[in-house]
Simulated assay, not measured.
Amino acid sequence: MRKPSRRSRTVLAAVTAAVLGVAGCDAAGGGSAGQDGTKARAAKPSARSAPVWDVSPASIAAVGDSITRGFDACAVLADCPEVSWATGTSPQVDSLAVRLLGKAKAAERSWNYAVTGARMADLPGQVARAVTRRPQLVTVMAGANDACRASTAAMTPVADFRADFEEAMATLRKALPKTQVYVSSVPDLKRLWSEGRTNALGKQIWKLGLCPSMLGDADALDSAATLRRDTVQKRVEAYNAVLGEVCAKDRRCRFDGGAVYAYRFGTGQLSHWDWFHPSVDGQARLAEIAYRTVTAKRR
């Protein structure tokens, strides 16, 4: 046999190196050196290829406060969970659960653990009850009652608010590491005061003790009243910053980015009894915001 020339040996070496290089990449993809790279990746897909967020979860549990309970949407001073933005079955609302699961499954595969009057400190307990259902999505709307106190001095400190929310998230993650979380921002309470104060009946309901830090002395426009309301608004903004920051640390959590806070509730979206809580139409608007956030194709 004729001895290969120097040029032939150089070409052979280059081809051999290229072949070995391809084999090496395939092996790194999860198969043996002799296994086809495409088949190896198909047999053992990379964890990074699987989507972190599922835009169509099969079950939902809601936690939070009176807004998620549909308080004052159907009758004065009463819960009305059937119109809840999160889990309600009313066709007038087209809740998040109905949009994601369909009406029949929404009745079977969604659960409302929110409690009227609840604050962030109550959220870990609600989450502990919710996880027993093993939901694929948990919705959170809490914080308004932390600002709606007898006085601005009685509002929940921001550090405590953060600690309570982190505890709730830790409770969820310990039980259900892969469950997704949708977090709503706290509504702009000052705007709700501004809209509702034009209604005489609403202001009478407010006098029963509804969010006194914001709604007390509803017609007062002096510097003290203005400072009080501004203080409440700034606290709500601080709460929303915490919700966004804590949620951002969890790859299976989505914050609405302040969409509920920014939504300009009008009198048509407010309860016709207290002119503060969302009406049926207001609940429908909250459902729209939640659905857009949950189904957005990102991350």
Rank of each mutant, 00 (worst) to 15 (best):
V186M: 00
A107F: 09
A42P: 10
S213W: 05
P157Q: 05
P91Y: 01
M155F: 02
D160A: 12
Y263E: 14
E108K: 08
R48P: 09
A58T: 13
A168L: 08
A238T: 11
R133Q: 15
W53P: 13
K249W: 04
S90K: 02
D230T: 09
A114R: 05
E195I: 14
W206R: 00
G143H: 01
A73Q: 01
W53A: 11
A106W: 06
L176G: 06
G21Y: 08
R134H: 15
A200P: 12
A153L: 02
G196W: 01
A241V: 12
L12C: 13
A61G: 09
G31K: 02
G125M: 01
R7A: 15
R254E: 15
A170R: 11
L201M: 11
L221T: 15
C80G: 05
K297E: 14
D146E: 06
R99Y: 07
P51S: 08
V260S: 04
G117P: 11
L243R: 04
V294T: 00
S32L: 08
D256Q: 04
R133S: 12
V242P: 06
A23T: 13
A147C: 11
I60H: 04
R48V: 15
D72A: 12
R228Q: 10
R228L: 01
M214C: 06
T226F: 01
R119M: 13
K203C: 15
S110Q: 03
W193V: 08
V246G: 05
L208W: 08
A28T: 07
M155P: 08
A147W: 08
R235Y: 05
G88T: 08
W193S: 09
V181S: 03
G70R: 00
V83N: 00
R264T: 13
K190T: 10
M169E: 14
A218Q: 06
D79S: 04
P187V: 00
